[in-house]
């Protein structure tokens, strides 16, 4: 087995995931929130591709492609909501957007 060792993939993936997770928890702008979510998704992709190479099994790479499709769909909806909110001249702050409070 040559090339980059698996630990590097996992390390990168874990770092990306933690950065994304902190972003989701700290950021208040929905646009950046979405970016952070994308980061988390892609960290999962990195892990999938890494495992795929490690076990020499292409299933992981196919999973990564599927995740991208889902992520694209999710971003379309998320950005649509952001644009719609912006056009209502409502402040882009997820702490203010709490109408669904029980």
């Amino acid at each position: 087995m040559t090339g980059v060792p698996l630990a590097f993939y996992i390390g990168l993936s874990a770092a990306m995931f933690l950065i994304g997770m902190l972003g989701v928890m700290i950021r208040r702008n929905p646009l950046l929130l979405l970016l952070a979510v994308e980061l988390m998704l892609n960290s999962a992709n990195v892990a999938l591709v890494g495992f795929s190479r490690h076990w020499d099994d292409s299933a992981g790479q196919i999973f990564a492609l599927v995740v991208m499709v889902v992520a694209a769909a999710e971003v379309v909806i998320g950005l649509g909501l952001v644009v719609a909110t912006f056009r209502q001249r409502i402040e882009l702050d997820v702490d203010q957007l709490s109408t669904l409070k029980g």
Binding site: V24, M25, R28, P30, L33, V94, D95, L97, S98, T99, L100, K101, G102
Partner: peptide, 8 residues
């Protein structure tokens, strides 16, 4: 109380 409406 769980339904705060706050995404974060």
């Amino acid at each position: 109380a769980a339904e705060s409406g706050l995404v974060r």
